[in-house]
């Protein structure tokens, strides 16, 4: 079982909580127009980052991040 991260960019407003919690996995970049947006740097991050990934997912104000197992 490995973590798989997906994000719903339509709902992302670039609050950058994920970047603060887990910069190994998330970045926030300027987009062509509108809000800055999350970018997932590692879709299947290693297990030792699980705790930080979960903080990022739980504290995202717009609940953009989904963590599933595959």
């Amino acid at each position: 079982m490995a973590m798989k991260i997906t994000v719903d960019r339509e709902l992302c407003q670039g609050h950058s909580v994920c970047l603060g919690e887990c910069p190994e996995v998330f970045d926030v970049v300027e987009s062509d127009e509108g809000y800055s947006q999350v970018v997932v740097l590692q879709e299947n991050p290693p297990e030792e980052l699980r705790e930080k990934v979960m903080l990022a997912a739980n504290y995202c104000p717009n609940h953009v991040i989904t963590v599933s197992e595959e």
């Binding site: 670039g14 609050h15 950058s16 909580v17 603060g20 509108g34 809000y35 800055s36």
Partner: peptide
């Protein structure tokens, strides 16, 4: 609106 949200960022 993007700059307005930037003021609400984590830091």
């Amino acid at each position: 609106l993007k700059i307005q949200v930037d003021a609400l960022r984590y830091q």
